[in-house]
Design a protein around this nucleic acid. Structure first.
Lengths: 191, 191
DNA sequence: TATTTCGCTGAGCGCTTACTCATTGACACG
DNA sequence: CGTGTCAATGAGTAAGCGCTCAGCGAAATA
C-alpha cells in the first residue's frame, strides 16, 4: 500500500505548498502568480492545478495553515498570562516573531474576497474580546480603549512595515513605546 | 483666440478628470479601469489617452489635486489652532469630512509604485512633524507617542472603514474615544 | 510480458488590461 | 469656398493572468 506513485504525489503537493507559502509570505498573496510558483517549485505550470483546483484554494490552504498556528499560539498566551501588561508583551513578541505574515494580512486584508476577509476579521475580533475580558478583571478605566490601542497600533505599524523599513522587526522597535502607553492608560485618570 | 476647438478640448479633459475622480473616490485607484472611466464620461476609450498619456498620469493628477487640497486645509488648521487637543479635534473633523479619500489612501498606499508612495508618505511625515512641534510647546511627557497615536489610530480606523461599516463616518464614531485617550496621555505620568 | 492507470506536462485558450493608430469630420484660416 | 488642422474615435494589439486538456511515460496490475 506504500505506493511509490502516491508518495511522489504527496511529495509534489508539499513542494508546491511550501514554495507557495514562502513566496506568499515574502511578496504577498496578491502579487505572486501561479506560473512563478510552478517555476520556483520546479514543476510544470499545470501541475499546480492537479493539486489545487484553483489558485484561491492554494491561497486558502496557506492562510488556514498560518492562521491555525496563530490561533494555537494565542490560546497558549491567554492561558499562561499573568496580568494584562504581560499578555500584551507576549502578544507583541509573538507578532514580532511572525511579522511577515501579519504585516501581509494587515496590508492585503481589504482586498480579499468578502468570505475570506470576514473569516479573518471574525478571528481577530474573538481574540480582541478575549483580551478585553482579561482586562476587565483588572480594574481599569477604559478596557476597550486599551485593547483597541494595542490592536490598532500593531496593525498600523505592521501595515507600514516597509515604510518604516527598520532592520529587523517594526513591532520590536515600537514595543516599548506601546507598552509604556498602555501602562499610562491603565493607571490613567477617570473619565 | 477663444478657439472653439480649444474650449472643447479643455471641457473634455475636465469631464474625464472629474468622472475619474468621482469613480476613484468611490471604488479606489486600483479597481477602476480606463474603459470604465471612458464609458462613464461618455467619450471613446482612446480619448482618455489623448488627454492623459498613461493611466498613471490620470491617477497622479487626481491624487495631486486631492493632496494639495488636504495640505491647504491642514496648514489652515495649524495656524488657527489653540492647544494641541483643539488641533487634534479639528484634524479628526477634517478627516471625517474627507473620509472616502483618506480611507482610500490608507487602504491602497502599500500597493502604489514607490515614487508615488514615498511622496504621499513624505507629506504625511511633514504634517506629523508639525503636529509634534506644536505639542512640544506644551509640556507633555511623550510628544511623539501622542502624535503617533493620533495618526496611527486614525489610519487604523480609516483602513478598517468598511469592516466597522458604520452609518456615516468611522472617524466621527471613534473621535471622542481618541480625544479622551490623548487627554489621558497628555496628563499622564512620567516615564 | 502485456495492459491499464494516473501523475505530470506545457502549449494553448479565453479573458482582461492599458495603450496605439489609421481614419474621420467639424472647425480654423487664407 | 477650398484646404489644412487636430480633437475624437474605436477596432486592434501586446502582455499577463488563471486555467484546460490531449498526450506521455513510468509505475501498478494482471
Amino acid at each position: 500500500m506504500s505506493n511509490k506513485r502516491q508518495l511522489q504525489k504527496i511529495q509534489t503537493r508539499k513542494n508546491i505548498f511550501n514554495t507557495a507559502k514562502m513566496m506568499f509570505l515574502q511578496r504577498g498573496f496578491i502579487d505572486v502568480t501561479t506560473a512563478e510558483i510552478a517555476k520556483e517549485a520546479g514543476v510544470a505550470h499545470g501541475t499546480i492545478f492537479v493539486h489545487f483546483p484553483t489558485r484561491e484554494d492554494l491561497v486558502l490552504s496557506v492562510i488556514d495553515s498560518e492562521m491555525s498556528g496563530a490561533q494555537e499560539h494565542i490560546d497558549r498566551l491567554l492561558t499562561h498570562s499573568g496580568n494584562f501588561v504581560d499578555l500584551a508583551i507576549s502578544y507583541l513578541d509573538y507578532l514580532a516573531g511572525n511579522e511577515s505574515f501579519h504585516a501581509l494580512i494587515a496590508r492585503e486584508l481589504p482586498f480579499y474576497k468578502p468570505g475570506l476577509r470576514d473569516r479573518i476579521i471574525f478571528r481577530q475580533a474573538l481574540i480582541q474580546m478575549q483580551f478585553a475580558d482579561i482586562l476587565k478583571h483588572e480594574q481599569v478605566p477604559n478596557p476597550t480603549g486599551i485593547v483597541q490601542y494595542l490592536f490598532g497600533m500593531s496593525h498600523y505599524y505592521l501595515s507600514m512595515r516597509d515604510v518604516f523599513n527598520t532592520e529587523g522587526s517594526v513591532i520590536e522597535r515600537f514595543k516599548k513605546s506601546m507598552i509604556d502607553t498602555i501602562k499610562i492608560m491603565m493607571g490613567g485618570s477617570d473619565q
